[in-house]
Design a protein around this nucleic acid. Structure first.
Lengths: 112, 112
DNA sequence: TGCATATATGAGTATATGCTCATATATTAC
DNA sequence: GTAATATATGAGCATATACTCATATATGCA
């Protein structure tokens, strides 16, 4: 996929710069993480407090397996991290920017 | 789905407010629109300039049908609008907030 | 070591998604 | 009216997604 060079011209201004493949992939992955209701609920909860897997499952009425699968998804994208305390894993958010995207969208959606 | 009231307590602060179903749906739909590479490319292009369907297809090397289908998707969410000029439909973005979410994510992705 | 608790993982399944092809519709010009 | 151009739409297909069940793994403790 060729990348058209931006011509430094006042008329062209900031338009017409194409997205490179890597950026496109990262952006789509980020939004994909935020496009599922279950992941949104989990991330929103973790944006407020650190939680164990079972706490998340209880609070959101989800199966432990469902939560664990989605946490793996979020962890692969480095959107959440965890610390161990015995057999319990406490998860927390790990990407302030993505949390900010989420809270912005929530604010926008609930105020229109 | 019950909605827990926020207790005005400094200790509780802003935590523990759950998302209502409607907000959750709107947020997930918005991010779903932004989670596909094709739609991202289309929306990003439209964030820069108004384009006809064929212009989008040409510029992004997509089939007219693909573009039309995705524009319908975006139009249903009121993320784009169009004006008619003869047989040509010129599409443009119609949700500044969503465009802002997109450009933020792009900026974030391309600077890390 | 053996048991209990917490979490992770793999397989199976139902549904959703996105693309392509063929075709329908709409507008303009003749 | 017909032809040409621009766009929309429906069907079919391949793939991705998210959930659930069953089970594996890991840690702590008696």
């Amino acid at each position: 996929m060729e990348r058209t060079e931006l011509i430094s011209d006042a008329a062209t201004s900031l338009a017409c710069e194409n997205l490179d493949e890597e950026t496109l992939f990262m952006v789509s992955q980020t939004f994909k993480a935020l496009s599922d209701a279950t992941r949104i609920r989990i991330l929103y909860l973790l944006s407020q407090k650190e939680c164990s897997v079972n706490e998340i499952a209880d609070e959101l009425s989800l199966l432990q397996s469902t939560v664990s699968h989605q946490l793996r998804f979020l962890k692969n994208l480095r959107l959440v991290k965890f610390r161990r305390a015995g057999t319990t894993l406490y998860y927390s958010h790990d990407d302030e920017h993505v949390v900010h995207l989420l809270t912005q969208a929530i604010h926008h959606a609930s105020h229109d």
